[in-house]
């Protein structure tokens, strides 16, 4: 209640500067008083916006911290160790000289990590009987799941950043290292959403993991042309709008398409979760 009242008040304050400006136009002779009241309104709005932003940031940070503590345990340490073992082997075999190969391995590795993390989201809550408590809160199921997915994606992004910084510092690996971060965070979100959707069918973490890896395997081996690495090197061109060499616009277009796909997956997932009486019985 308090929250909605505050949001309403913030929206109302948005109109104050507009009202002051309108007043200034209508009564140009009373300039000084109008300017003072206009500045006061803008100042009030700024303070309110800053306070609201700080509160929201603290709120999301709070949720991020607790979600991380619940889900990033043994798997997180294994992922870090695995990353260094995996990429260390690649570098020892001198494959890092071929950036494309490096990018592809990077993509495959972080997809597997995301599946391993996301496969536990709903099944673990269900096994611990915390699902009923969480879903009876005023926060919607959709918001809760999106928040958990974002948390996991951000952690996978940090892991990728760690790997890239490490290998850029100690090896000759450079090409596409920054672009891969964009790929990893967006692809992680998509892989996470697919995995959570699969978990609503499979209901058990291990089964979810296996089915998700199978789906990702199909994608890697038979639909590689639709993968982000292929699109990075051979973007689906929709016109030379941006810089010709970077093809940044094409890459962004590819990511926007991915977000639309994530939207469809999440929409179907939330529809399913609304009807899942099975989860409690």
């Amino acid at each position: 209640m308090e929250e909605s009242r505050q949001a309403g008040w913030t929206v109302y304050s948005l109109f104050k500067p507009i009202k002051a400006a309108w007043h200034l136009i209508r009564h140009p002779k009373r300039t000084v008083s109008n300017v003072v009241s206009g500045v006061a309104a803008v100042w009030g709005l700024l303070i309110r916006l800053i306070r609201w932003t700080l509160q929201e940031t603290a709120f999301w940070f709070h949720l991020f911290r607790y979600t991380s503590r619940q889900f990033l345990r043994v798997e997180a340490y294994l992922s870090v160790l695995g990353a260094f073992a995996f990429f260390g082997t690649i570098i020892l075999q001198d494959m890092s000289a071929h950036p494309r190969v490096m990018l592809e391995y990077c993509y495959i590795y972080f997809t597997i990590v995301m599946v391993l993390l996301a496969m536990n989201l709903l099944p673990r809550e269900r096994e611990r009987d915390t699902l009923e408590i969480l879903w009876s809160q005023p926060m919607t199921r959709a918001r809760l799941i999106v928040m958990q997915l974002i948390t996991l994606s951000v952690w996978v992004f940090f892991l990728c950043l760690l790997v890239i910084v490490f290998f850029r510092r100690f090896t000759a690996y450079t090409e596409g290292s920054l672009m891969i971060l964009l790929f990893v965070i967006t692809s992680s979100l998509a892989v996470g959403a697919i995995t959570v959707l699969i978990s609503t069918f499979c209901r058990h973490a291990i089964a979810t993991g296996l089915v998700s890896l199978l789906v990702m395997g199909i994608h890697f081996f038979w639909l590689r042309k639709l993968g982000p690495i292929e699109i990075y090197y051979n973007p689906i061109s929709i016109g030379q709008v941006w810089n010709q060499n970077l093809n940044l616009f094409d890459i962004l277009f590819d990511r926007i398409c991915l977000f639309v796909l994530i939207g469809f997956i999440l929409d179907y997932l939330f529809r399913r979760l609304k009807q899942t009486a099975k989860w409690f019985t």
Partner: peptide, 10 residues
């Protein structure tokens, strides 16, 4: 604290 957060208490 976590559940309070989910209830929207800040």
């Amino acid at each position: 604290d976590y559940l309070g957060c989910l209830r929207g208490i800040r």
